[in-house]
Nucleic acid binder design. Sequence first.
DNA 1: TACGATACGGAGCATCGCTCCGTTTTGCAA
DNA 2: TTGCAAAACGGAGCGATGCTCCGTATCGTA
Lengths: 198, 198
Amino acid sequence: MSTANTPPAPAGRKRSDVRRNEQILLDAAAAVFVRAGVDAPVREIAAESGLGMGTIYRHFPTRADLVVAVFRHQVDALAAHAAPAADTPYEVLRQWVHQFADFLVTKHGLAEAMHSDQAGFESLHNEFVERLLPVLDRLLKASASAGCTRADVRAYDFMLAIGNLCIGVETFPDYRARHMIDLLLAGLARTAPGAERQ
Amino acid sequence: MSTANTPPAPAGRKRSDVRRNEQILLDAAAAVFVRAGVDAPVREIAAESGLGMGTIYRHFPTRADLVVAVFRHQVDALAAHAAPAADTPYEVLRQWVHQFADFLVTKHGLAEAMHSDQAGFESLHNEFVERLLPVLDRLLKASASAGCTRADVRAYDFMLAIGNLCIGVETFPDYRARHMIDLLLAGLARTAPGAERQ
DNA sequence: TACGATACGGAGCATCGCTCCGTTTTGCAA
DNA sequence: TTGCAAAACGGAGCGATGCTCCGTATCGTA
């Protein structure tokens, strides 16, 4: 639905400057995002790239689209998820979740942006949901089927929760997102038949 | 440290218009926050109140300070927390956490603002930490002492986590923050001596 | 009632995301 | 090689927002 450029006639027919500039923009944006976070002003990316604002917005209709494009490869890697060697489905799930969290935390402001209500940022949210939700859903179901974890947790809720827990790691240095994610994972694990929380 | 107005000479010595306008501003802001969320432009609050921008900023140096002032009463209520009749310390904790979450969710955008990295919004974060952290810490320790919950979770992390989990309830209607908070609480409950997660 | 201290009001500044349109570049065809 | 139309570029400019500044109005006291 989103990218309809690959099917008809591959990227070759685009004007050479277009192709060149797109790469320049992606590189510049990546550099700026590392330096100043994903909230960096578009003007700064324009300056870094040496191109004009108009060019940026012709290539990426919205700032969020640029963010999506820059991180596409890493999202792909998470989505691909060559199932690692782990003992239990729960452990597989746990490792993937931490990879996801690491990804979000590493990119300054990505977690915040993903849940932003700012207009235009739905595309970022959608990208994550479309690409990663199926993977997480599969891992969750596998773990639940194996009896490792509860089956009453929706992948969508869980994914947003993980993302949310990553918010603020940079703003509040004392906040340990990792611990809280582990806590959430612990809550997911099927508890022994204790009496509490019916 | 924050409010040094009550100790020396109570509010009586302020000019009458100052007192009147402060109340007008608080009422107007409260109305606007309900209608348009805590992200509403300051100009809108000025319009609602019939006062000028300058007046707002003289009373509340920053938008965040206005937000803090508007919700002070409700934060006080949470901080007071007349311990309810509940069976276990864990249940007491659980109820308080849900009250806190309800508070955040009810005020449009409050959770987001609380973790915003926007300049000036630290005061909001600080207000929450100063007022509510002691309460939560007490509840956590009580529950842990009673053997209901793990003792290795810091109140600060937990509070930010709860707040974070509330983010997005309005932007993403399908997201069930309540469930995820319950999941976090479940993770807090002392798990039976199973082998997983050493 | 007069006057100094205090508070008010809103135009204005800087910073955003994003648009619009005159100018430049590109690639095909004569 | 050169002409030319389609396509892409660039950056001034728009509207919105948080916040400041200072001339003007108000308050309370002598």
